[in-house]
Design a protein around this nucleic acid. Structure first.
Length: 783
DNA sequence: CGGGAATTTCTTTTT
DNA sequence: GAAATTCCCG
């Protein structure tokens, strides 16, 4: 059949002519995209009507089912691309899906307007109906840092001691409520009063009020406000229920309650909803994901078809056996048995190292020997539990000149320089964007500090005008000091000038001008720290990326949700990332370092969520193992630096849970336990002194003093033995300093040096490396 | 107000 | 050990 998918007509709804539909049926018989699907996969694709839940284990062709299903819906004429709502969890997944649909059915799939993350689609919907939820359609989306600053303001307004109730904690609490779909009035009273002596609910309300004034939303609102919109406007809801004839959900196990409610509202009418997920890969419970959503699915959609995909096409027998054996220890799971028809292959290796440094060295050596056997570096990944593990590994790679790339890392748009640049653009485009104004009023430093800002706030609040307007007006009065006034006037005039520039010049050039005239670029050029060059590079990339958008407004609209650093693809490099970032990826060889109790399973997860936490960690281990096609290499270190201090550790309990037959315990190369060759890694005398037992003791003694229990804290929190700080702390009194001029001393931060002067308890010291500094005598020791 | 020094916190993971 | 935050002096 000469039936290129590209030739398919894009639009062909149920109202299409009979012949068109007949042609559609004909094509279905010939549909090449169904070839090669196994029976279960085919069932998942062809059951188009009614609710369906696809439980897809790792490597069982989950994405393939999703994309094929979309292709099937379109090419059989059941739906047009814009009739389908397809939600993913990450932008990466959305891009990937778009790409693969394109490959399946050609340009017809390109224009799927409703394929994206929950948040991106929520944004799109909210912009259309903003006024119905009390917003203007050009509302701004707050990043984590803006959100935090707002929380601080709210706390300050309510006179709450930020020391005891940190903004971060409040932010976390409110996020938790939003993840559960709770608006301020829906929060259970008991929970609402748990924060800050009963003020939790008030704070949530106050925070939302601040957001509304600023015409801003946070990530949680993007979903929560959709719920509000639909509940209060049934006609709008019905419109979307009819619009989305078919709904598909990727990574269903990661959805939180808010997302679940969101989906349920949309799917309630037509019930053509297909959810694909794997309860064994649910690793975002800490962020509000509810594995329960999978169980509730059959309850909410009675008669749902459930399909299990259990044939794994990715990993060898041993790897699969190891992963399956491990995950079988979890109690709360739906239960799937992965099978493969692949060879057993190599066993999973387990290697112990003396310390994390040695672990990194062994790992790098292992990679080099694979490289010598022509193993492509792009097919090797190192997956760590927490990003702090990366540094030592990176150090080793750099020393060896082994090319690598870090995947994940801080998002492009979260970097300080990008958010600053964005703030400049936002305030230029929209003079009432107070958050943006506050962010850059004194960046770069121009002498407009806290005092000035307080004045502006006072005026703005009294007159009910935005900060920028307040600034303009205050410049006309003589309430400001002359110096401040002229700086501020210059700044406000710049904003007006730039705003006019937007009308007449290409937007990327305007951005360039703004960054230069404001002195922002100059600020980084002056800074000669290691990462300044990188930041300038990012700014360049930022300006360049604007050119892909028709105008400044369009750019700003999409940037806060979607923007990511462009990565050089396909290069011959080892990939380094966290286990979370690895979900959905696969490699021939996977290294899994740091399998130690406390690190993995992570102590904090255990403390906070107990048994459920342990099971989630185990699922994370399962995800890690199943990323490997041919080789999985575990390792642990008996000594690791935690918070800068060396601690000894014990191997992860997960290691002993692996089926022995699938595992090969590898002796570390000879120089491990034998003391002899440890000499060759003895570093320079100065550096090494940090690692000596004496140094460790010194650190242990100075840090980690107990504090007295906080009086306000009742209940289980302070049930432990009450610690009383009974020791007299040696104060630097007026007594003569223990140090004399010309004496050799040692400072924890600046290293060795010679005392050049003594003034009470303050010393002037000429440090060998750091130059002359003024330090407190309690901070140095005789050297 | 700005800069440097001292102090504290931080470690999961992401839209 | 590093980054962020607070503290303190000029």
């Amino acid at each position: 059949m000469q039936n290129s998918p590209n030739a398919l007509p894009a639009a062909e709804g149920p109202s299409a002519s009979i012949t068109a539909r007949a042609m559609g049926a004909l094509r279905r018989d010939a549909s090449p995209y169904l070839d090669g699907l196994n029976p279960e996969q085919r069932l998942a694709v062809e059951t188009t009507e009614g609710p369906i839940l696809v439980l897809a284990g790792a490597g069982t062709g989950k994405t393939r089912v999703l994309t094929t299903r979309i292709a099937h819906l379109i090419s059989t004429g059941r739906a047009r691309p814009f009739d389908i709502l397809a939600v993913t969890f990450t932008n990466k997944a959305a891009r990937e899906m778009k790409h693969r649909i394109g490959a399946l059915i050609g340009p017809a799939g390109e224009g799927m307007p409703w394929l994206g993350t929950f948040h991106a689609i929520g944004t799109k919907i909210l912009r259309r109906h903003a006024e119905l939820v009390g917003l203007k359609s050009d509302f701004t989306i707050l990043g984590t840092d803006d959100q935090l600053r707002l929380m601080k303001q709210v706390l300050a307004d309510q006179n709450i001691d930020e020391k005891r109730w940190p903004a971060r904690a409040l932010s976390h609490t409110i996020d938790g409520w939003k993840n559960r779909g709770l608006s301020p009035e829906q929060v259970p009273p008991g929970e609402a009063s748990a924060f800050a002596f009963g003020k939790g609910g008030t704070l949530y309300t106050a925070y939302q009020a601040r957001l509304a004034t600023l015409n801003a939303v946070d990530f949680g609102d993007l979903l929560l406000l959709c719920l509000k919109l639909w509940r209060e406007n049934p006609d709008v809801l019905e419109n979307y229920q009819d619009r989305f004839r078919y709904i598909l959900v990727d990574e269903y196990q990661d959805t939180n309650v808010a997302q679940y409610l969101w989906l349920r509202l949309l799917a309630q009418k037509r019930k053509n909803v297909a959810c694909v997920g794997d309860d064994d890969q649910s690793i975002y419970g800490w962020r509000g994901a509810e594995v329960d959503n999978i169980l509730r699915f059959e309850h909410d959609f009675p008669g749902a078809t459930v399909v299990r995909l259990e044939r794994n096409y990715r990993s060898t027998g041993h790897i699969l056996a190891a992963a399956s054996g491990l995950i079988a220890r979890n109690e709360s799971r739906l239960g799937k048995t992965l099978r493969t028809e692949d060879e057993p292959g190599e066993q999973v290796t387990v290697t112990g190292a003396w310390d994390s440094e040695e672990e990194a060295r062994l790992l790098a050596e292992s990679i080099e020997s694979l490289q010598a056997k022509q193993h492509p570096l792009s097919e090797i990944a190192v997956l760590v539990r927490i990003s702090a593990q990366m540094r030592e590994i990176e150090d080793r790679f750099v020393q060896l000149g082994l090319p690598y790339r870090v995947i994940g890392g801080p998002r492009f748009y979260e970097r300080a320089e990008i958010r600053d640049a964005l703030a400049y653009l936002r305030i230029t485009m929209n003079g009432s964007d107070d958050l943006a104004f506050e962010r850059i009023i004194n960046t770069p430093k121009r002498g407009l500090g806290d005092a000035t800002l307080q004045q502006l706030h006072g005026y703005a609040r009294a007159e009910r005008v935005p900060l920028l307007t307040a600034a303009r007006r205050l410049c006309e009065t003589d309430e400001l000091k002359p110096k401040v006034r002229s700086t501020l006037r210059a700044l406000t005039e710049s904003f007006s000038r730039w705003a006019r520039l937007v009308e007449s010049q290409p937007h990327s050039e305007v951005a360039q001008t703004i960054l230069e005239e404001s002195g922002y670029t100059a600020m980084w050029q002056k800074e000669r720290s290691a990462d300044a060059a990188g930041r300038l590079e990012n700014l360049k990339e930022f300006v360049r990326s604007m050119e892909e958008f028709p105008d400044m407004a369009a750019f700003l609209e999409h940037v806060s949700l979607v923007m990511e650093a462009s990565e050089a693809e396909g290069a011959e490099r080892v990939s380094l990332m966290t286990l979370h970032a690895a979900k959905g990826l696969e490699f021939d060889t996977v290294f899994l370092p740091g399998w130690e109790d406390g690190l993995f399973p992570n102590q904090r997860a255990l403390d906070e969520s107990g048994r459920a936490g342990l099971e989630e960690e185990r699922r994370l281990a399962h995800v890690g193992l199943t990323r490997a096609r041919k080789r999985a290499k575990l390792s642990f270190a008996v000594n690791r630096r935690i918070h800068g201090l060396w601690s000894s550790t014990i191997p992860s309990r997960f290691i002993d849970e692996l089926p022995p037959a699938a595992v090969d315990v590898v002796e570390a190369p000879a120089h491990f336990s034998a003391g002899a060759s440890r000499f060759d890694r003895n570093p320079q005398p100065f550096e090494s002194s940090y690692g000596t037992p004496g140094w460790q003791r010194a650190q242990a003694n100075t840090g980690g003093r107990g504090f007295s229990a906080s009086p306000g804290r009742r209940g289980s929190g302070s049930s432990g033995p009450r610690q009383i700080e009974g020791e007299l702390i040696a104060k630097s009194t007026g007594a003569p300093s223990a140090f004399a001029v010309d004496q050799r001393v040692f400072h924890t931060k600046f290293g060795p040096g010679t005392v050049a002067g003594v003034d009470g308890n303050k010393l002037t010291v000429d440090f060998d490396k750091a130059g002359r500094k003024m330090v407190l005598d309690s901070f140095v020791q005789a050297g």
